[in-house]
Design a protein around this nucleic acid. Structure first.
Length: 133
DNA sequence: CGTCTTTGACCCGCGC
DNA sequence: GCGCGGGTCAAAGACG
C-alpha cells in the first residue's frame, strides 16, 4: 500500500476535464447504488480516503495503456466498490469511481471521506456525479 | 500467522 | 455460436 497518498489529496486539485464514463440507463441507475466519478491530478494512483480497500481485480482497458484497478471496502457487510484508472492521454490524471455508500465508521485519524469530498467539490475536481452517470 | 496483492481463469452481456 | 470487452473470483505468494 502506498504510504503518503493522503497528502496528494490536499495538495493538487487542478482538474476540470470531461469524463468518458459509460452511460447507464435510468432504470439501472435507480437499481444500482450511487456512483461518484472524479479526476485528480496526482502522482499516486490510490487516493487514501480513510477507508481500507481490498484490491480484487486488475484489467487492461482498450484505448488505454494503463491498467484499471478494482477495490472493495475491507469491512464485512460493506459492499462499497471503487475503480481507479489513469487517463489514457494524460498520465498525471487519475480517475476514481466510487460505487455505494459506507455505513460504518472510518478507521483512520487523518481525513474523513466527507471532508475530502468537500474539498473536491470546492476545487471543481469532481467531474461527474451519480445522476449524470 | 493473519491480512492484503497479484494474476489468470471464469463469467456474463452484447454484437456479428 | 463465437469472440471480445469488461467485471469478479480465488489460489498462491508477499508482507508485516
Amino acid at each position: 500500500m502506498l504510504p503518503t497518498s493522503s497528502t496528494a489529496f490536499s495538495s493538487d486539485f487542478n482538474v476540470a476535464y470531461h469524463s468518458n464514463v459509460h452511460e447507464v440507463s435510468r432504470t439501472d441507475q435507480e437499481i444500482k447504488q450511487q456512483r461518484y466519478a472524479f479526476q485528480t491530478r496526482s502522482p499516486v494512483d490510490v487516493l487514501d480516503d480513510g477507508y481500507q480497500w481490498k484490491k480484487y481485480g486488475k484489467k487492461i482497458v482498450k484505448n488505454n495503456k494503463f491498467p484499471r484497478s478494482y477495490y472493495k471496502c475491507s469491512h464485512r457487510e460493506c459492499n462499497v466498490k471503487k475503480q481507479i484508472q489513469r487517463h489514457s492521454l494524460d498520465e498525471q490524471i487519475v480517475v476514481t469511481t466510487y460505487e455505494g455508500t459506507h455505513t460504518h465508521p472510518v478507521d483512520n485519524s487523518a481525513e474523513s471521506f466527507d471532508q475530502i469530498l468537500g474539498n473536491l467539490f470546492a476545487c471543481n475536481s469532481i467531474i461527474n456525479v451519480s445522476p449524470t452517470l
